[in-house]
Amino acid sequence: MDTGAMGAREEILGRIRAAVKGAPDVEIPRDYRTSVTVADPVGLFAERLDDYRAIVHVVPAADVDAKVAELTEGKRMVVPGERAWTRDELAAADGVVTGCAIAIAETGTIVLDTRQGERAQTLLPDYHLCLVRADQIVGGVPDAVARLDPARPLTWISGPSATSDIELNRVEGVHGPRTLEVIIST
């Protein structure tokens, strides 16, 4: 780091200290729901995913393998961890199948924390099949934040890729996977 940059650092910090001198401190009220209780997490999560136009299946744990086989039949699927994948392979694949770190019922969100595969692997294929165990579903955003490790790169996914850039209307499918399919195992 050159001296000019160090100068900037000290100057900015100095300006801040001068600006806030004498200003009162602020207490942070946390009267919001710091944990969200949901009567039927699986049902709500499925409903919220459906609102994003993701495809949802709720199946007993014992039937998950069969369901995955059925959904991926004839598709060139990326299975992270199986082997290394080049970017071109990923882009050319039909889809990717992963688990998740946690899921949020109230917002229909799935969070990946790279233990399910590198970030590129869940990004380049056009179809993402995600397996969520019922016990991974928490009620609300605060519950998820509390359970996640910020040291890992996280990807929060709420439905397929979308845009509101044309007349502020939501359209599904831009750069990320255009189809998100979720199997919830109970």
């Binding site: 917002t107 229909g108 910020p150 709420s158 939501r170």
Partner: peptide, 11 residues
Amino acid sequence: ERMNPYTSTWT
């Protein structure tokens, strides 16, 4: 939206 489609965090 209840949540935007993608949020990335990295450290």
